[in-house]
Simulated assay, not measured.
Amino acid sequence: MMSTKTKVAQRRLGKSKMKISALGLGCWQFSKGQGFVGRFWPDMPQEDINDIVKMSLEGGINWFDTAEVYGKGQSEQALGEALTNLNVPEDQALIADKWWPLMRGSYSITSTIDKRIEALNGRTIDLYQVHQPFSLSSVKAQMKAMAELIRNNKVRHVGVSNFNEYKMREAQQVLQDEGYFLASNQVKYSLLDRRIEKNGVLDAAKELGITIIAYSPLEQGILSGKFHKNPELISNISGPRKYSSLFKPSGLRKTKPLVELLEQMAEKYGVSETQIALNWLIHYHGNTVVAIPGASKKHHAKENIGALQFILSDEDMDAIEQASRKVARF
């Protein structure tokens, strides 16, 4: 049986009693290159996935975020297989999964849950999320279906993803009427994308005790600084992400001042630019924001773990905030 070696501070998921590390591992990269969404990343051998999961657990990360749409279930299966191969107890490896709502109704939430559990090798789904706000059914119907899953012990907690403030509040109210609560809202958030600070989502989450799960916290690697130092690396990227405006010469020029500050901070703390960016994200708003960086190589997992081992000073967090404000989307 595998046991974690590094103890890191944990925080509650929303109003639940479940404790999660400030960083989880995003498992989009485990899609095995399958499906429209999975083609965003190259195929990864299962042995590499096993190693990344093992390293993450040993570094204190205790939860993993996957989704039905990631490789049409391939990510779920790869994660389930890795945890089984490593013989990790369920309480040491919490799982967040997501239901894909496009062109489907709320009835699909309950009718497909057993397939999701099966894909995960029978492991418990600790957090089940509606992946997008686009469905053939209402938020009310979706949350009632989610509440039914909790009552039937199919999932432990409920979250949403990409919900605006209005829909998030509606989801919380429906669940409250059912005797439960909305644990989380998974949204895009980084030093280069801070729209949730202006559109009401972050303020509402703080008010209601809902955890914000930040995806794409490193903007596909831009905040690592490696593409600024060596733009030729962009030509080696597989998948459509290299066509993002952030990877264009104009995008690199725009974000360069922020990345240079991250580099200065990295030297000051003896860490990497990536770790500085992640550390700011999980501490600037207290315990409200957690993040799910991915990892397609072992050294990415090592980078993630390192971001949990220190805390930026208030002065340095404010300096990063000001530099970010000049280049981020609001």
Score class of each variant (00 low, 15 high):
Ser224Arg: 03
Pro45Thr: 11
Ser135Gly: 05
Leu208Gly: 02
Met2Lys: 11
Ala204Phe: 06
Pro293Glu: 03
Glu260Tyr: 00
Glu170Trp: 02
Gly225Phe: 03
Lys154Gly: 07
Thr255Ile: 10
Ser324Glu: 07
Arg104Met: 11
Leu86Ile: 07
Glu178Leu: 08
Ile61Ser: 02
Ser16Gly: 05
His283Asn: 15
Phe40Cys: 07
Phe36Arg: 12
Val174Gly: 05
Gly221Phe: 09
Leu83Gly: 04
Pro89Gln: 09
Gly225Lys: 04
Ile61Trp: 04
Leu262His: 09
Gln29Ala: 15
Asp51Ile: 01
Glu90Met: 06
Leu136Val: 05
Lys19Phe: 05
Ser3Met: 13
Gly73Met: 04
Asn287Phe: 02
Ile305Asn: 14
Asn279Thr: 11
Lys242Phe: 09
His300Leu: 01
His299Gly: 00
Ser235His: 12
Phe30Glu: 02
His283Ile: 04
Glu321Met: 07
Arg11Asp: 03
Val290Pro: 05
Ile113Glu: 01
Leu192Lys: 01
Val158Asp: 06
Arg116Cys: 11
Arg12Tyr: 14
Ser138His: 12
Trp28Cys: 01
Lys154His: 10
Gly286Ser: 11
Ser296Phe: 01
Phe134Ala: 05
Glu170Ile: 02
Gln29Val: 01
Ser272Phe: 09
Pro257Tyr: 11
Glu232Asp: 15
Asn121Thr: 04
Lys298Ala: 12
Thr4Pro: 13
Glu47Ile: 13
Ile213Val: 15
Lys254Cys: 05
Ser224His: 09
Ala214Gln: 08
Ala205Tyr: 06
Ala119Gln: 13
Leu94Cys: 01
Ala214His: 08
Ile276Gln: 09
Tyr243Glu: 15
Ala295His: 05
Ser272Ala: 09
Glu207Gln: 15
Gln309Asn: 14
Pro101Phe: 06
Lys140Glu: 15
Gln10Met: 12
Ile95Cys: 04
Gly239Phe: 10
Glu232Thr: 14
Ser296Gln: 13
Trp28Leu: 14
His157Leu: 14
Glu118Cys: 04
Gly24Cys: 10
Leu120Ile: 12
Lys188Asp: 10
Lys268Asn: 12
Leu261Thr: 13
Gly33Cys: 07
Glu303Asp: 15
Leu281Ser: 12
Lys297Trp: 05
Thr84Phe: 04
Val53Met: 02
Trp280Asn: 06
Arg151Cys: 01
Ser238Gly: 00
Gln34Gly: 00
Ile234Val: 13
Ser135His: 08
Lys297Ser: 13
Leu79Phe: 08
Gly179Lys: 06
Pro101Thr: 03
Ala301Pro: 06
Glu232Gln: 15
Phe163Lys: 05
Val88Asn: 02
Ile196Ala: 07
Glu81Gln: 15
Pro89Asp: 06
Phe310Val: 10
Lys19Ile: 00
Val8Phe: 08
Lys154Phe: 02
Phe310Cys: 12
Leu246His: 12
Gly270Ile: 03
Arg253Ile: 04
Ile276Pro: 00
Lys7Glu: 14
Lys268Leu: 13
Thr6Val: 15
Ala141Arg: 11
Asp48Ser: 13
Gly60Leu: 05
Val53Thr: 08
Leu223Asn: 11
Val187Phe: 05
Lys19Arg: 09
Asp91Val: 06
Lys98Leu: 04
Val187Trp: 03
Lys256Glu: 14
Gly179Thr: 07
Lys32Cys: 04
Lys226Cys: 00
Glu178Ile: 10
Leu94Phe: 14
